[in-house]
Structures are given as C-alpha cells and as structure tokens.
Design a protein around this nucleic acid. Structure first.
Length: 155
DNA sequence: GCCAACGTTGGC
DNA sequence: GCCAACGTTGGC
C-alpha cells in the first residue's frame, strides 16, 4: 500500500472539459494527446490508480482548476499517435515501439473554477509546479499540502 | 494576435 | 555533442 499521490492535469475545455469527462461513461476519459516525454514518464513511472487529480482548464477564457478527478487505470498505448487524421498523430512513432501512452482519468466532481490569479495569491501554492515560471508541462506533481489547500479553497 | 519560454530537430 | 532554428504552449 503506497501513499496516494496528487497531480494536476491540463486539458483544453474545447477538447475535453470537466463537463465532458463527467458526461462520459463511468465519468472516465482516456487522456489522449500527451506528447511530452516528461509528462509521459510521470504517467508511466509514477501515477497509480487512485491518485488524486486536479482537473485544470487551459487555453480558454477562464484558466484554472475546474474539478477533481482520479487516476483510473494504468498506462496503455495512445492510439491517436497512429491515426493520420488525429491532431496527435506522430509519424515517427512505430507500432512495434509506441512512443506515447495514455491512462484513464475519472472525473469525480465539478468545482467552481479556481483561477490562476487566485491560485497565485495562495501562499500554500507558492511553490506549486504548475505555477512556476515557464512551466509548460501538461501533467505536474502536486504535494499533499497543495492538494489540501486547493480542496479547502474550493470548499 | 502577441510573445515569453521551453522542447525538439537537424546540420555540422 | 553543440547549438541555432523552429514549433508549441498557454496566459494575456
């Protein structure tokens, strides 16, 4: 039994919002489109079923945390890398050695949006990975302290 | 649309 | 292995 871990996962709401995830079967969506090795390695090497996920809306009018979710599966091959019609197609990825993985994310509840500006005002989030200058990772680790502070702020 | 910041690619 | 050029991310 390992201690639960916490993550923040960015999604463009035009692509998959917290509402979309809640409306999916079992409130679960395959997290397609991760095309960054560091983020992939988090999924493959560190994320475990049951880990907490802050569901973050990016590239939208109101960026911020929009819901709470959980990791719902281990990793498997992301099929969109082999689909020439997909925006996530990767012509350099070979079937016999897929580069990209996904895992399932289960939405648990929608929250009010905890916006970026409000997050930056929270002392408990001062060192939060996603808020660091220049961060572009779509999946970042969240400490228990940060998780608790976010959940309390949303309550 | 702008632009800062970063990751990846590819020539050498 | 270096590093310039390029593409992408993502807030504003």
């Amino acid at each position: 039994m390992t201690t639960p871990q916490y993550w923040l996962m960015k999604s463009e709401p035009d692509d998959c919002s917290i509402d979309d995830a809640l409306a999916a079967p079992e409130q679960t969506v395959p997290w397609t489109g991760v095309r960054n090795y560091q983020a992939r390695n988090f999924m493959r090497d560190a994320m475990r079923v049951g880990d907490g996920v802050l569901f973050y809306h990016s590239s939208c009018p109101e960026p911020g945390i929009a819901g709470i979710a959980r990791v719902a599966s281990a990793t498997r091959t992301d099929p969109t890398q082999f689909d020439p019609k997909s925006a996530y197609f990767d012509k350099a990825s070979k079937k016999e050695a897929p580069r990209w993985l996904l895992l399932d994310v289960q939405a648990l509840r929608k929250t009010r949006v905890l916006g970026l500006a409000e997050m930056r005002e929270m002392p408990a989030l001062e060192e939060m990975r996603v808020l660091q200058r220049g961060n572009r990772l779509s999946i970042t680790p969240v400490t228990k302290g940060e998780w608790d502070a976010v959940v309390a702020q949303l309550a």
